[in-house]
């Protein structure tokens, strides 16, 4: 499954980059994130996912595969959701200077396996898109708040 999107933040790329590499910011932005810890080369995280009556807790690792500050970040990750199955994927985030700030665009290729894939098909595509949007919306909101705080 492919996910992609882009939005503009009213902050310079360097600040956006810093936020994207800050576990505290990430933890606050990832929907349902219960725990995130920095590891060597990435993060360890636990995320609780809720889709209607379905609840699943995914634990896994995210690895920073490529980091070209402050332009391009490639992440790979995999998480196990126990009975729900697993999620695995890679995402590329590109920061481009744009009028009034930075354009953040992302492209992710995600594999959902196990029970969620087998019996949750009608839920997965829409939920994944929604979660991605929530993540970036929240990231955007955090950056904007920071902006307000710092000005």
């Amino acid at each position: 499954m492919k996910l992609e999107g882009s939005f503009t933040v009213a902050r310079p790329a360097s600040e956006v980059w810093a936020a994207l590499n800050d576990p505290a910011v990430l933890g606050a932005a990832i929907p349902g994130c219960e725990r995130i810890e920095q590891t060597e080369g990435g993060y360890d995280a636990t995320v609780a996912l809720k889709i209607g009556p379905v609840k699943a807790r995914f634990s896994g690792q995210v690895t920073i595969a490529e980091a070209y500050s402050p332009e391009r970040l490639v992440l790979t990750g995999e998480g196990s959701g126990g009975v729900a199955g697993f999620a695995r994927g890679a995402a590329t985030v590109v920061l481009t200077p744009a009028p009034g700030g930075t354009e953040v665009s992302y492209e992710a290729e995600v594999t959902i396996g196990g029970k969620l894939a087998q019996i949750g098909t009608r839920l997965i595509a829409s939920t994944s898109r929604k979660l991605a949007e929530q993540f970036f919306a929240s990231l955007n909101a955090q950056l904007s708040t920071r902006t307000e705080a710092s000005t």
Partner: peptide
């Protein structure tokens, strides 16, 4: 099956 070989017709809902 999706491109990853995951069965997407895994219940009588689909």
């Amino acid at each position: 099956y999706d491109e990853d070989g995951q069965l997407t017709s895994g219940s009588f809902m689909d």
